[in-house]
Simulated scan of single mutants.
Amino acid sequence: MKKAENIIVGISIGDLNGIGSEVVLKTFEDTRMLELCTPVIFANVKQLSFIKRNLNLEINLQGIDRLDQLVLGKVNVLNVWREGFDLNLGTNDDKVGEYAIKSFVTATQALKEGKVDVLVTAPINKYNIQSDTFKFPGHTDYLAQELEGDALMFMVQDNLRVGLLTDHIPVSEVAKHLTEELIVKKIETIKQSLIQDFSINKPRIAVLGVNPHCGDGGVIGNEDDAILKPTLKKIFEKGTLVFGPFPADGFFGSNQYEKYDAVIATYHDQGLIPFKTLSFGNGVNYTAGLNKIRTSPDHGTAYDIAGKGIADYNSFKEAVYLAIDIFHSRNQYHEISQNPLKIRPKQEFSKKGE
């Protein structure tokens, strides 16, 4: 197993006019983080040094031009571009979006090639990243194309885990996307992630209904009775501990979620609103179901506070912790799969020194 400091965490810098650079630099200003991993930020060292000085941060940046120059135990910055350009913090700028994608695409390629072990992505602006060569709604869709597996948005904060059957689609289209095939695939992805990424051998999964009160017997829509209930029954009969559908309105307020290892919402806001309310800025967006590990903070570019030095970096730090923990969990899972007699107790790998 890799030593902690030898775990290479690739970081795409996101929108430089937002708070991404600030939360990344604040996270690794704490030198204890370098006992857990070696970060490599895909950006430009001169620009990050400028931002560092503006924010009065005490952090040493190691500029490199190739990944084979990476220095373990240092905060490395891979120069993905050389040219300088003006930053106008707090504004939407297509040029900045272009560099955000350069960072992300280069970091993803390094992840594919095994040159970094995990990827943590700082926030992007979904509007200014669009171009003739990049036509994706965001990080997840591109990763789904580039990496093996079935990508699924999985929001995580300690033991609260919320997955989605559908994500970035209009509410008006949710019902027609809910097919038996989709439900089976998403639940299997969540189940496998809970086993290999979170070391939960027999996960219990709750599914929320699509309609208010799960349709009230067809009075408020028939999707729950016609699609969700029979599909969940089939999945349960095959050995997966899946339960529901549950009415979504009182599920989190009554703390029902605490009985389950994961909750699956049928659409984006049904899952993300309660998750972000409960996680208080410490949540992590994990892309489950892929052959590589990617996490990100649960917030956006926050243009309104960019450059003011007041951005909360806890969510980004938690994203780094989670990526490292999942990296270790997957290694143990594969080791045990190859040698079932060699079973180790679950360990806490991250948050060392806190």
Rank of each mutant, 00 (worst) to 15 (best):
residue 343 I to M: 13
residue 64 I to W: 03
residue 96 V to I: 14
residue 30 D to S: 06
residue 36 L to H: 03
residue 159 N to H: 12
residue 37 C to F: 03
residue 271 G to V: 14
residue 321 Y to M: 08
residue 318 E to Y: 14
residue 281 G to Y: 08
residue 204 R to A: 02
residue 286 Y to K: 12
residue 236 F to Q: 14
residue 78 L to A: 08
residue 124 I to Q: 01
residue 280 F to L: 15
residue 226 A to P: 00
residue 170 P to I: 10
residue 214 C to T: 15
residue 279 S to Y: 08
residue 227 I to M: 15
residue 63 G to L: 03
residue 11 I to F: 00
residue 184 V to I: 13
residue 136 F to W: 12
residue 19 I to R: 05
residue 126 K to V: 05
residue 213 H to C: 06
residue 247 P to G: 12
residue 202 K to Y: 08
residue 116 V to H: 02
residue 116 V to L: 07
residue 131 S to G: 04
residue 97 G to T: 10
residue 346 K to H: 10
residue 121 T to R: 07
residue 291 N to E: 15
residue 41 I to N: 10
residue 25 L to Q: 07
residue 323 A to S: 15
residue 307 G to L: 11
residue 113 E to S: 15
residue 242 V to T: 07
residue 163 G to K: 06
residue 193 S to E: 14
residue 328 H to S: 11
residue 53 R to V: 00
residue 81 W to G: 01
residue 238 K to D: 12
residue 22 E to D: 07
residue 42 F to I: 03
residue 258 E to D: 11
residue 132 D to I: 03
residue 100 A to T: 13
residue 187 I to Y: 01
residue 324 I to C: 09
residue 331 N to V: 10
residue 211 N to P: 03
residue 43 A to W: 01
residue 55 L to F: 04
residue 352 K to Y: 04
residue 65 D to K: 14
residue 45 V to R: 10
residue 38 T to L: 04
residue 293 I to H: 08
residue 349 F to R: 12
residue 203 P to F: 04
residue 320 V to H: 09
